[in-house]
């Protein structure tokens, strides 16, 4: 029966298959006139019966810095997976601006289109130098053939130097990325995101394993990025969240529990219950 249904679905004539559609032109199609740059609506995801996301609805405004907190298993990482195309939701819709449907794009298209993602565990290319890491992340033609003949232009070199300065790795440019400290790797990864010229930055636990001073500098960096980019930060460190947050969203069991300023959220009885237990 299921086979028949899927066959019927495939033969429907009132729709166009995803692969037939032209890829969206991100710079032209991206429309944020109504405010939000990211519309996550009624998204549900389940893994083997476990509902990781449960009718999650979330709007992120253009240029906003948003913190997302929640206990373990609240669906924070799954939400990022859905936005970046790694996981396809069972139902719901995700739009980038008003007219780009992210659910029919693949990971690399979404990344090229301007949604950058930093992983929970710092992930850099350990065998390449810091400079080369940034060079690979740079927004450029990402197809196979042009990359065989690629030569760095002066302008691109300047851009890399600029980012190196911003993430304070200028002195380490020639070092192997694998030899950097944990905090430096986190910074390099943020630098790599910035090389992609993203409109939205998804940052998963940016200060995990950082010293107090590094944490402070990261807070500074992220707040300075907001405005030009929309930044979504998932973090456990409450002090850090308090230091950067304007709006905080609390996730619990796959849906939004509370949203508002840090103070409002912290005094919300439901949030207290979830965090402190019954």
């Amino acid at each position: 029966m299921k086979l028949l249904d899927s066959a019927r679905e495939g033969l429907r004539r009132d729709r166009v298959f995803d692969f037939m559609l032209p890829p969206p032109n991100f710079s032209e199609d991206l429309d944020t006139r109504h405010g939000p740059i990211l519309y996550v609506e009624d998204v549900s995801v389940s893994f083997d019966g476990f509902r990781a996301l449960n009718n999650l609805t979330l709007y992120i405004n253009d240029g906003e810095l948003r913190c997302i907190i929640g206990p373990n298993g609240a669906g924070k990482t799954t939400m990022m997976d859905v936005i970046t195309g790694r996981t396809r939701p069972d139902s719901g819709s995700v739009w980038f601006g008003q007219n780009i449907d992210l659910l029919r794009l693949s990971e690399h298209q979404i990344a090229q289109g301007g949604i950058g993602r930093k992983f929970q565990k710092p992930t850099v290319f350990e065998h390449l130098s810091v400079f080369e890491n940034l060079e690979l992340a740079m927004a450029s033609d990402k197809r196979v053939w042009p990359n065989l003949w690629f030569r760095l232009t002066g302008e691109q070199r300047d851009r890399i130097d600029e980012i190196l300065q911003l993430v304070r790795l200028t002195d380490h440019a020639r070092r192997r990325a694998g030899a950097l400290s944990h905090g430096q790797k986190q910074w390099l990864e943020i630098g790599m995101l910035l090389m992609q010229n993203p409109r939205v930055l998804l940052v998963d636990e940016p200060v995990a394993g950082m010293t107090f001073e590094e944490t402070e500098r990261t807070a500074e960096l992220l707040t300075s990025l907001a405005g030009r980019h929309s930044v979504i930060v998932v973090e456990h460190d409450m002090a850090f969240v308090r230091s950067i947050a304007r709006t905080v969203t609390v996730l619990h069991q796959g849906s939004v529990l509370a949203e508002g300023s840090m103070d409002a959220v912290q005094n919300d009885p439901r949030v207290i219950e979830v965090y402190l237990g019954e």
Binding site: H108, F125, R143
Partner: peptide, 27 residues
């Protein structure tokens, strides 16, 4: 070439390469 560096990168961190916007499969 830069292609070679991308290949090396995907050997070490495939999903990172993917999220840098490369269609890893083609490489």
């Amino acid at each position: 070439s830069r292609y070679g560096r991308i290949v090396l990168a995907l050997r070490d961190a495939e999903s990172r390469t993917r999220f840098c916007g490369y269609k890893v499969e083609h490489f």
